[in-house]
Structure formats: C-alpha cells, structure tokens
Amino acid sequence: MITLLEKLVDGADGAYASKQDLRNLEHAMFSWSERKDAYQAVENNEKAIIDRAMILIQSSKTAPDGAMSPGTLNRCRRDMTLALRAYALGMLLQDEEMLKDRFLYWQKNVLQAMGLHHYQGVKFVLESICLELPEAQANLFKPYFKLGQELVMSN
C-alpha cells in the first residue's frame, strides 16, 4: 500500500490520479478488513505458528541428522519469527516492494553469506500458517511467501 500510494502521488504530480491508480487503491481499500483480520490472526497465533514450524522443520528431510543444538534452534526460531512478522506486514500493506526492500534483500544476503543457498525455513512457516489459520486468511499470505522463495533462492 505504501508503494501504491507513492505511485499514486508521483503519477498525480500536477494532475489527477489515473483511473488505473484509483482502481488499484480502491481494490487495496476493499480488501483492507480481510488483510487486517489475517494480520491480527497471525499476531495472536504467532507462538503456535512458530512452534508448529519448528516441529515441521525438525521432522523434515531438510533438517540435519540428529538433534539441532539449542543455539541453532533458538536462531531458527528467531529468524522464523522475524520472517513471519515481515511477511505479515507485507501482506497487511499489500506491498511486495516494501517486503523486498525491508526484508527479503537482507535475508537473501544473510543466507548467501552463511552459505545457505537452499534454505527452506520460511516454507515451514507458510505451511504452519496454512495449518493454524482459516484457509481464506492463509491464502492471503501465499503470494508473499512465493515472492520470498523466488527472490531468496535466486542467484
């Protein structure tokens, strides 16, 4: 929404907003209540979502053999919590550009620096959202997680 508003303001510099810009803004406003409810559902269920994501990642084939160390588990929990909050804000504001600029580029750089070129942690966060929230709310998050996976995993 921030990017949408910036485009509207820039495009209307000295003129009226275009019909397309007004339609885009109307669409964003129309879906605000649903997005706000989904955002609040994630906020209210954050612990359950992250707990389930931790269980999913530990039981997956991508987890290292043997138990993860407490330090690794704590970092994983922290990183998934930060990701969940960033994706939730991107969805709330319906703003992929803001999500990219404020979180995804940073995440990609960190993962590359750590040599984690096939990191799948956020996949488990989305899977957990799909299990913890009603389907309609979970579906609002899917485009943002897809964007994240595409961007973070690209070279």
Rank of each mutant, 00 (worst) to 15 (best):
96 E>M: 01
65 D>C: 00
8 L>I: 10
11 G>F: 04
3 T>K: 01
45 N>D: 07
85 R>T: 12
98 M>V: 08
37 D>F: 04
16 Y>F: 15
29 M>E: 03
91 M>K: 05
24 N>F: 01
118 H>M: 05
46 E>V: 04
134 P>M: 02
112 Q>S: 10
122 V>Q: 08
114 M>G: 09
147 L>W: 00
94 Q>V: 01
22 L>H: 09
40 Q>V: 09
75 R>E: 14
94 Q>T: 03
107 Q>N: 15
93 L>M: 13
79 D>A: 15
45 N>A: 13
40 Q>T: 06
148 G>T: 03
19 K>I: 08
144 Y>L: 03
10 D>V: 02
33 S>Q: 15
96 E>I: 04
73 L>E: 14
114 M>Q: 14
31 S>L: 05
138 A>D: 04
54 M>V: 07
60 S>W: 09
59 S>E: 13
155 N>D: 10
26 E>D: 11
21 D>I: 00
68 M>V: 13
151 L>R: 11
98 M>I: 08
133 L>K: 01
29 M>L: 14
23 R>C: 01
60 S>L: 05
128 S>W: 06
65 D>G: 08
56 L>F: 08
108 K>H: 14
36 K>W: 14
149 Q>Y: 12
54 M>C: 04
6 E>P: 00
144 Y>R: 03
30 F>W: 06
53 A>L: 05
82 L>I: 13
149 Q>R: 13
28 A>D: 08
5 L>W: 02
17 A>G: 05
35 R>P: 03
134 P>R: 13
30 F>K: 11
124 F>Q: 01
136 A>V: 07
121 G>Q: 07
29 M>I: 15
113 A>N: 14
61 K>I: 06
131 L>C: 07
103 F>D: 02
100 K>H: 13
76 C>M: 15
75 R>D: 15
43 E>T: 11
144 Y>N: 03
